[in-house]
Write a protein that binds this DNA or RNA. Structure first.
Lengths: 338, 338
DNA sequence: TCAAGGCAGGCAAGCGGTTGCCATTCCTGA
DNA sequence: TCAGGAATGGCAACCGCTTGCCTGCCTTGA
């Protein structure tokens, strides 16, 4: 077969080359390499040695084709360039690499449609998927989970394994913090409506404020980007409230910029709390008080759960893991103005 | 074949199902789907209709196995969580998605070894690769390029297609800027030694300073992370210089933090210029004067070059593309102290 | 001593496509 | 009228690996 590429890819060494070199059948080579117990130890050693010598690399596609296993896990995030995902990407990546799995990172661009489309299209090329902040409906998510091993991050749905960050307790901490600083009303700057985390945060703020008999208000929804910060800040100023908790740090940082533009002092006149402690929260100005989430760990845990599911045929031991969050107080919060 | 997974993956529809349903041979179906010109228009329409009806999804692995094409491009970055890569990731992603290619993002963890290892292991699963800031040696890079279509970003090597950012002119602009502010010595805060961009920037700074008969100095190397900023700042303070250009924004932002800790005013006492205009450069404190690079565009261009290479059997029309950079002046630079 | 069973290895049938080559059919121009 | 060729479709051989099943042989234990 001639190759019209300018590039000549040298023929790769296959299992058959090893078979020929060792005198064993290809099937034996295959077993020696992927099912150690099935062949004689001496045979295996021999085969492994020759394989190494020829620098054999198994062909993923051939393997996937017959076995159905691809040793690949997809990680779906709604926006790769949202720094919030850093930790997640990092965590999943490490854990997957350690387990010898490939890491397929997919940006779903905040679209549930794209998300499910990708998932169905990819079904044959991945062993499982980790969905970070899925935009899918409960029903759809549950349905997908029956077709493909899935772990959701920051999304809790019956029938779907998940790892979630304990925002409720974190938001409660944030609320207490603001209340202890003398703020008498807390405004929640809402993120995208189809975000589970957004609703979870809002609900826990409502609950926390209720415990203190304080009013809360919700503004938004705002797209979860820095750009939305301006609109959010303007809306906040308009309420004359002195403290807010923003859906995430991106939004909070955007607000900080706008508040300064409009001459409002933070934390002098307004206190701002973010969520996620993402990259940048510690060097923006003023530095941001925020809810730190162990998101990298979440990634690791999610991978562990998924792999456990893939390896043991047993169904999940636990349906979901909850990771603690805690408040990091920086410069953006202070006493309420008198 | 029974399936011991708790999950039942329904048998997927194959090309044969379509063949059966339409009465054509599998080969015809295959052609209708992947080589439109090769079959009668009516036939193709019929087949495509049935395929859609059965919601047929071609099996990537089977296809890759026979054709060698995987419709997948790997994008290697030295650290996914370095915001500098945001634009690159985004740009490559869009362009690849538009072309129907899958985007395999790989973190090489700053290791050339890992980089070449991944590349050789992946050879059969990808059609080509885009190497962002490769840590590979010239020789190795050139060798790899003969085995696999490659486009390097921010790295120029004979025999390897590349898209580079015109740092020389950018650094020159930065130098002029500092000089015009009255600074009489510019210090370069060096990044990793094995970074091509690092050397390129240093060389152009030397050249620019020489044109003005001014001295330059180089400190470092410092790892390209925010953490290294402290060491860099301390080293800078020690030189008593009043202006520096940092290898990248990450380093510059790290320095800003440390300089403030040590009570040095920026830009009052020291001016700092970063490189890349990455996420955060516009909201750190003070906001960072930096060299903006159209990195997202670089990603797009890199993908275009690679795809052109993959599609036309013709060798590259141009070996490398150079993208302009420009200085964005923000708050971190100011007149030299008298 | 011999049946039963375990171990190790080989055979061959795929997995789901792609593609070189061949057979038909029909069109074209001399 | 007929050779030559384009258009269209089918056949079958793979691609590289996995795996169900079979065979031969060696252990074991009654």
């Amino acid at each position: 077969m001639d190759n019209r590429d300018s590039v000549q890819r040298p023929r790769r060494v296959t299992i058959n080359d090893i078979a020929e070199a060792t005198g064993f059948a290809a099937s034996t080579v295959s077993r020696a390499l992927s099912r150690p117990g099935r062949v004689n130890a001496a045979t295996r050693e021999r085969i492994v040695a020759v394989a190494r010598e020829l620098s054999y690399v198994p062909n993923t596609h051939a393997r996937a084709l017959t076995s159905g296993r691809t040793e690949t896990v997809a990680v779906l995030v709604s926006d790769v360039t949202n720094p919030f995902y850093f930790g997640l990407i990092r965590g999943t990546q490490h854990q997957l690499k350690a387990a010898g799995y490939a890491h397929l990172l997919i940006d779903t661009e905040n679209s549930g449609e794209l998300e499910s489309h990708v998932l169905s299209k990819m079904r044959q090329s991945i062993d499982g998927a980790i969905l970070a902040t899925s935009r899918l409906s409960r029903r759809l998510l549950a349905a997908l989970a029956t077709e493909l091993p899935l772990v959701a991050v920051n999304r809790m749905v019956r029938g779907v394994e998940s790892v979630v960050l304990d925002s409720p307790s974190g938001v409660a901490q944030a609320a207490e913090h603001l209340i202890s600083l003398g703020h008498s009303e807390i405004v929640y700057m809402s993120g995208p409506e189809n975000s589970w985390a957004n609703e979870a945060r809002w609900r826990s703020l409502v609950a926390a404020a209720a415990r203190h008999g304080l009013p809360v208000r919700r503004l938004g929804p705002f797209p979860a980007g820095r750009m939305s910060g301006s609109a959010a800040a303007d809306a906040l100023i308009n309420t004359r409230a002195t403290a807010c908790i923003a859906f995430n740090d991106l939004l909070a940082i955007g607000m900080l910029t706008r508040l300064r533009e409009r001459g409002l002092g933070v934390p002098g006149e307004i206190s701002v709390v973010g969520c996620d402690d993402m990259f940048g929260a510690d060097f923006c100005h003023p530095t941001l008080t925020t809810l730190a989430a162990p998101i990298e760990q979440a990634g690791r845990v999610a991978v562990s759960m998924l792999l456990a599911r893939l390896h043991d045929s047993a169904p999940a031991t636990r349906q979901s893991a909850v990771l603690p969050t805690h408040l990091i107080v920086r410069e953006s919060t202070g006493p309420a103005p008198r």
